[in-house]
Design a protein around this nucleic acid. Structure first.
Length: 482
RNA sequence: GUCCCCAUCGUCUAGAGGUUAGGACACAGGCCUUUCACGUCUGCGACAGGGGUUCAAUUCCCCUUGGGGACGCCA
């Protein structure tokens, strides 16, 4: 195994978002591509918002997508624990180190004070950064406040006027000036350290070589660089992947419809399609023989992925293409697999619990599938129709009763077990009755299904048993005879 | 407001100074076909605007505009 180590570090405060899923995917792909390790770390330092259910959901979504991790929850690993909430002692040690070196300080400001300060800055048209008030506190003052039991947080002392350069894998060279940064909290008054601090400590301790995350963290990076410096850690390679936006170009949110992996799963999408679709949001596979192969499975993507082809632009989520792509993946699946994914198919009254019939039905209708929901969506077309005189009014008895007679006679001896045999069967019926084209096929469709459209006629003869075919044709004959 | 990022068809994107600006989804039409779908073919459709640099800019630089992000004791 190489020294390349990547991680996905979500906070368990909700479902796995498509943006997060894609970040996880890019990390996974690069790790697999390079023979490195893919680590999952749960960033649950916000005890207010982190929930156990979110953790379970996150893990479930990741597993469903097929993004298996080498180290992390349920897997263990040398750099654990992988829940930040279990690493508080570790962070405290580093906070103390910084405190001893006076690279951070205690802050006694209350939320109200900070809020007032921000408003004041905003009113003056200044960037709302912390004034550094508590940085000026004398040791004795701090002592007194501490003794009085006043709550306090720990702030990182940002050195002013420093240039902070980030060489980003996707954005290239980016520079920040530390002066735009206010001293920021690295440890809350409730004792829990904050993201920018834990992230640095863990990425270092877990020997992360590449930090691949969302664009929204780009402006956090200078803060983290400062912490790396203060702690004397080497910095990893950064790569900031663009955001995924909603159809209106704004940040993706609930009002944009399905945005979580969970929802796509529930809506009949396949993990291979979701992963495939997400991979193409911000990455393009290299051309091969002048063409791009867009439909890929995870191993194929692993073989092709690289940050040289990751785009800087934010991407708007287009569900239409996902739908198409899902169909591509779904239609490729063997019938058994589709049946396994659509267990309710067996409960249908037409299928009657018969695996054999279900598989025949799948073979006959698979070209119509885009989502798993479409699998059962065609059943109504196979159900026994309620035929009436009005429905069959287009079909004069003198012309079509001979057809039904002929069908009823020939069905028994015919081999309907193979769809390839059916064109010959129909040809023979056509020859005997003199009916062809629409007269022949459309009438059979209506007699059999009571509908004007649906799968090809041969599919019905393939799926329906001879008894069912006979029964339906007999019924149609009875209605025609009136 | 300040700082950072981004800017090619409606959408995802290829392009890395000279291309009829390519592909995919969607859309329209043709073919296949009893219908719909699948498949296939064709069409529609873009370099945000303005300045530079250059013999030559979609491509490099600057400005504007637009979008996004950060400026939290959220991550």
């Amino acid at each position: 195994m190489s020294d390349i180590r990547l991680r996905f570090a979500p906070s368990p405060t909700g479902f796995l978002h498509v943006g997060g899923a894609r970040t996880a995917l890019f990390n996974y792909l690069y790790a697999r591509r390079t023979g490195g390790a893919f680590i999952l770390r749960i960033e649950d330092t916000d005890i207010e918002r982190s929930t156990e259910e979110s953790v379970e959901n996150l893990l479930g979504s990741l597993r469903w997508l097929g993004l298996d991790w080498d180290e992390g929850p349920g897997k263990g690993g040398e750099c654990g624990p992988y829940f930040q909430s279990q690493r508080i002692e570790i962070y405290n040690g580093y906070v103390q180190k910084l405190l001893d070196e006076e690279k951070c300080y205690t802050c006694f400001c209350t939320d109200e004070e900070l809020e007032a300060e921000r408003e004041e800055m905003a009113a003056k048209g200044l960037p709302p950064k912390y004034s550094g008030k508590c940085a000026k506190l004398r040791k004795e003052e701090v002592r007194t406040l501490l003794d009085s039991g006043k709550p306090f947080g720990i702030r990182f002392r940002v050195p002013p006027g420093e240039k902070i350069a980030v060489e980003d894998l996707v954005h290239g060279h980016t520079e920040f000036d530390s002066s735009i940064l206010g001293d920021f909290i690295i440890k809350r008054s409730n004792g829990f350290p904050t993201y920018n601090f834990t992230c640095v400590v863990d990425d270092y301790l877990m020997k992360i070589s590449h930090v691949i995350r969302g664009d929204d963290h780009l402006s956090n990076t200078p803060k983290q660089m400062l912490i790396y410096r203060a702690l004397g850690f080497d910095t990893p390679i950064f790569g900031h992947v663009s955001m995924i936006l909603g159809p209106d170009g704004s940040r993706l949110s609930k009002r944009h419809g399905a945005t979580s992996v969970e929802e796509f799963r529930n809506n009949g999408f396949l993990p291979e399609a979701v992963v495939n679709f997400l991979s193409l949001l911000g990455w393009s596979p290299p051309e091969k023989d002048g063409a791009v192969k867009e439909i890929m499975d995870l191993p194929e993507m692993c073989g092709l992925f690289g940050f040289d082809r990751v785009s800087k632009n934010p991407a708007i989520m287009n569900t239409e293409k996902l739908l198409w792509m899902n169909g591509m993946h779904l239609r490729k699946l063997p019938g058994e697999k589709i049946l396994e994914l659509s267990p309710s198919l067996l409960e249908d009254s037409f299928i009657g619990g018969s695996r054999e019939k279900a598989l025949k039905y799948i073979e006959a209708t698979r070209d119509y599938y885009n989502t798993l929901g479409d699998v059962t969506g065609r059943l109504a077309e196979f159900a026994e129709p309620g035929l009436s005189k009005e429905l069959l009014s287009e079909y004069p008895p003198e012309k079509f009763i001979p057809l039904l007679d002929c069908l009823l006679e020939d069905i028994h001896a015919a081999d309907l077990s193979n769809m390839q045999m059916l064109p010959a069967f129909f040809k023979n019926i056509s020859k005997k009755t003199g009916l062809k084209g629409r007269d022949l096929y459309h009438s059979m469709r209506v007699f059999l299904t009571g509908k004007n459209e649906g799968p090809e006629m041969q599919h019905f003869f393939f799926v329906l048993s001879k008894d069912e075919l006979s029964a339906r044709f007999e019924k149609a004959r009875a209605v025609l005879k009136g």
